[in-house]
């Protein structure tokens, strides 16, 4: 499937040594079988201990190893090199748009801050029953495609609006979670949640570019969730205007 050697171009930056980041070329022997990009990084690290990246579950559920692979964001552990290799070359860079701590490790503070901003927890202040709160399978189905997010940041860091306004635009990942709670029949703070999102930046900086949908390693659709939020906001506003007239 490959030539004898594989060339890897890796983004390197160590704040203690480098004034500027640079791309370093590594040549490694062609692996016998198809391996994941994360396995490739393990091989590089055995060659060069100083290579740094995050990883944990190595099966695409923890969201640690989001990175930019040949120009597209994805999870290293579930991306086979055969699917990204171009002329025996692979280029690995950190997720775009966030400050780099070292090599492929980015500072995700702003990403997490947006997540916390949408109050990512169920809000229901009525007295809980002794058993579970009931929810029909149909109501529960509405959470599918939303709750599975692994917070890898592949989507938000591929979004030009998030690059421009990471402090004001909530971004696709956190908006997906905002909708996860708006859509939950057990959550009672719909009004408050919508109010918190109704400014010109939080939601409306999404212009439907769809990069988020294109890169999500879990196959989720933040763009659709954002559309749902927009129509809820719209309806909410109309309701308010209507109630003002009465």
């Amino acid at each position: 499937m490959f030539g004898k050697k594989l060339q890897v171009s890796l983004y390197r930056y160590n704040p203690e040594e480098d004034k500027f980041p640079y791309m370093k070329k590594y040549t490694i022997d062609k692996p016998e079988r198809d391996i994941m990009v994360l396995d490739l990084l393990h091989l590089l690290k055995e060659q060069d201990q100083s290579v740094s990246y995050r990883r944990s579950c190595r099966e695409g559920v923890c969201g640690s190893d989001g990175m930019n692979i040949n120009g597209k964001n994805g999870l290293a552990c579930i991306t086979p090199i055969s699917s990204v290799i171009k002329r025996n070359k692979i280029e690995l860079r950190p997720l775009p748009g966030l400050p780099v701590i070292r090599d492929l490790v980015v500072d995700m503070t702003e990403f997490y801050a947006q997540y916390e901003k949408i109050k990512p927890f169920l809000q229901n202040e009525t007295t809980a029953p002794e058993q579970e709160r009931l929810q029909s399978p149909e109501e529960r189905d509405k959470l599918d495609g939303l709750y599975e997010c692994i917070l890898c940041a592949c989507c938000s860091t591929s979004c030009p609006s998030f690059w421009w306004n990471p402090d004001k635009f909530v971004g696709p990942a956190a908006l997906l979670q905002a909708y996860r709670f708006l859509a939950d029949s057990r959550d009672l703070k719909t009004e408050e949640r919508l109010d918190a999102l109704s400014d010109p930046f939080s939601v409306y900086r999404c212009h439907g570019i769809m990069n988020c949908v294109n890169v999500c390693p879990k196959g989720l659709n933040p763009n659709k969730a954002i559309g749902e939020i927009k129509s809820m906001l719209h309806k909410n506003k109309k309701d308010i205007i209507a109630s003002d007239r009465i």
């Binding site: 927890f121 709160r133 529960r140 709670f181 939950d184």
Partner: peptide
């Protein structure tokens, strides 16, 4: 009660 999205039976449990 904290919000864990359990799958459900028809009766909502």
């Amino acid at each position: 009660h904290m919000g864990l999205p359990f799958s459900r039976f028809e009766n909502g449990r």
